[in-house]
Design a protein around this nucleic acid. Structure first.
Lengths: 196, 196
DNA sequence: GATGAAATTAGTTCAAG
DNA sequence: CTTGAACTAATTTCATC
């Protein structure tokens, strides 16, 4: 994966705060020219770092219905499918799949339609149990973090960037700055079978 | 609160899908002129329906650290404070406050810094218990829903829009198309003390 | 409140370092 | 990979309906 430099990160930070900011203004702030900003944004989209330009909408002012957090415990091996199925429902806005096999979804539905949403989107045999919590508030505060909480590579001690990898060893998470450092650790037999 | 019409909703839908879409293109699609699109978008921002123009960033390609879902059970009356405190942390991206007093946050942190995030942001006495789950996938699929799952007003039977209200009666959620319908129900003594 | 034409401002292309 | 200049396109202003 290609490297992102500080200019890319700064452009992301500025766009996250205001995605309609003129490229000329971004160019001024990060110290490059407008065509360069345009090129880099295109590249960030091609890389999949920018998934899309969008709005943060306050749904409590907008949608008819009740906002809920649906927490589904999935059958082994079906977590990804369940996450995808829920994500494809248009009442579902945000989906999180967890390492322990549950899927958490934020949806706006009439209270008695939660079962309906699950039935329409998820095969019953994939749902071990589920839990629904009514939301009273929801906030999105995206930021492209700087170097706060930077991780250290367990092998070489360098800072772990977005190109790094992580693994689980005896239940503890360990980070590596690169796949070669991760492989070095693996060769030393440090990695458990459930490494990620 | 002023009414949003179908044109507003259609503009929101188009911007959620692509917030950098030219206003002239939106104007074509919804059948008004570009200045009207511009005016309406300004109005939607003033109303707080549009919270901001932003990016959907794939954090798994970007941030050093591990993505987690932090689930905090808060002390009575502190839910809102805890939600705000967590939201102000720059490693925290999304915060949900639930009616049962828990706060769920999506954050990107080194695994062993979850306690640190909580300690830095939330008074210990406000945390009754917490739980952290490692995320393997996270998706955001915002859509401005149409009339799917439209609610019916419990009093007059009309469709409940964003201007509607809801209340809880004997543990069941009931929707009203307006505050006057809600008040009518209240006068008939149907509303429990925990109505929302 | 909405519009079309004009003016301003932004974005992209391209030739070149 | 970057730029400045030229070109193209988008947005806002404003007078008018």
């Amino acid at each position: 994966m290609p490297q992102l430099d500080d200019t890319d990160l700064e452009i992301l930070r500025l766009l996250v705060a205001n995605a309609r900011r003129p490229y000329s203004e971004i160019a001024d702030k990060v110290g490059v020219s407008p065509p360069t900003v345009s090129d880099r944004i295109d590249r960030l989209q091609e890389l999949g770092v920018i998934r899309r330009f969008t709005l943060d909408v306050d749904r409590s002012t907008l949608d008819a219905g009740i906002q809920v957090l649906i927490d589904v415990s999935t059958a082994p091996g079906t977590t990804e499918d369940v996450a995808e199925s829920l994500a494809s429902q248009n009442v579902v806005e945000h989906v999180y799949a967890t390492a322990d096999g549950s899927v958490v979804a934020h949806a706006t539905v009439p209270e008695d339609a939660v079962h309906e949403v699950l039935e329409e989107s998820v095969a019953t045999e994939n749902v071990e149990s589920f839990d629904v919590r009514l939301l009273t508030d929801e906030q999105w505060t995206p930021e492209v973090s700087g170097t706060a909480f930077a991780l250290e590579c367990a092998v070489c001690g360098d800072e772990v960037t977005s190109q790094g990898e992580t693994a689980r060893i005896d239940g503890e998470f360990v980070a590596f700055c690169s796949s070669s450092c991760r492989e070095a650790a693996a060769e030393e037999g440090q990695l458990a079978a459930d490494s990620i």
